[in-house]
């Protein structure tokens, strides 16, 4: 089945190759195959698939990956706009969700 994609060209992910040591941690933590190995370092192969989870940034020892992490959840944002407490995420770990 073809992978599901959201918008093109919206995410805040940036990669600075100069700071990359090629440790490969980002490859292990990214759930969306955004990055791939390249010449002993990595490169951004599929930027539009990024969900801004922040796993790569958090685990990059060199600080080469930057992203403004967050959850793409409209109902949480509407709740926030209405000043309601955000009821987030009760679900099993096989389907990460920010539902009710």
């Amino acid at each position: 089945m073809r992978p599901l994609l959201y918008f093109s060209d919206v995410v805040t992910l940036t990669f600075d190759a100069d700071k990359c040591t090629g440790c490969g941690m980002c490859l292990a933590v990214c759930p969306r195959e955004v990055l791939r190995p390249s010449n002993g370092k990595v490169e951004v192969a599929w930027r539009d698939a990024c969900i801004e989870c922040g796993a790569c940034r958090r685990n990059c020892p060199g600080g080469a990956l930057k992203v403004k992490p967050g959850v793409g959840c409209a109902s949480a944002m509407i709740d926030k706009m209405l000043g309601r407490k955000k009821a987030c995420c009760v679900d099993d770990d096989s389907s990460p969700s920010c539902g009710q």
């Binding site: 599901l4 969306r32 990024c50 801004e52 389907s95």
Partner: peptide, 18 residues
């Protein structure tokens, strides 16, 4: 409102959509 339950949306994307 299903964006949150899905597994391929980003905060920036949802902001754009909204």
């Amino acid at each position: 409102n299903f964006t949150g339950a899905s597994t391929f949306t980003s905060l920036s994307g949802v902001q754009k959509e909204m």
